[in-house]
Design a protein around this nucleic acid. Sequence first.
DNA 1: GTACGTGCAAATGATTTGCGTTAAG
DNA 2: CTTAACGCAAATCATTTGCACGTAC
Lengths: 129, 129
Amino acid sequence: MVLTNQRHEILGYLKRARRHPTADQVYREVKKKLPRISKATVYNNLRHLVEKDLVEEVNVNGVARFEYRRNDHHHMVCTNCGRIDDIENEELSRLMNYIGSEIEGYEIERSATTFYGICRDCKNERGSQ
Amino acid sequence: MVLTNQRHEILGYLKRARRHPTADQVYREVKKKLPRISKATVYNNLRHLVEKDLVEEVNVNGVARFEYRRNDHHHMVCTNCGRIDDIENEELSRLMNYIGSEIEGYEIERSATTFYGICRDCKNERGSQ
DNA sequence: GTACGTGCAAATGATTTGCGTTAAG
DNA sequence: CTTAACGCAAATCATTTGCACGTAC
């Protein structure tokens, strides 16, 4: 893989990011370091990094979000503010892998579990209104 | 809810459809019965039906797909042809509900599990090439 | 009669692509 | 050197919106 400056900065930013940024957010952030970078380059690189399994893509409401690949985990999406949190649950991961291996006909490559709800911050805000 | 002809046909089509059609597929099919229907009407109604919980929306690769709401179930998406199949697994449903109820802070409303892989048809096609 | 729904066309927003130029290995 | 990657602008695709007209109840 050709390690360009652009690719390096994009991956670096994702490594640091706690949240799950959209392509546009990655673009804005990386632009601070590399002001001449184009949006197309960000999109191309994100796709590339996902293909190389260095980055994970999570699709929420039709918008792609990205995160540096780490342990097997699941997602919680706040339906109010759009925030995503990671959760780990070994029992769930184990069951998913087991089911994946048992499905007739299909050859499962991966799986994703997402919980939707209201995050603590949004719940508090609502309560205090 | 105002039950217009358009809404009736859209819901009727989804009830019959075995697959999980996109908005465009719904449009094309319903157009056969109601040639003057517009795409906007299809989109508006699909959104409406989802809000009313009569229809379920599944987002795959950034494209919305729809299905008439039935039992709690999960999805398998073929990464080759895009086909979606439903699977039921009580143990998984039970565990998901349990985890959802236990997550600190979040107030979970729903959850979704999707398996990605190669379906039987695509596997056979590849094998015979 | 009135609010809600429809059809059309235009707008939006995310993502992709074509192409001439640049830089990594 | 040579191929992959870049930057830019234009294109594409799914979805939404504004508005004048029509229809369910």
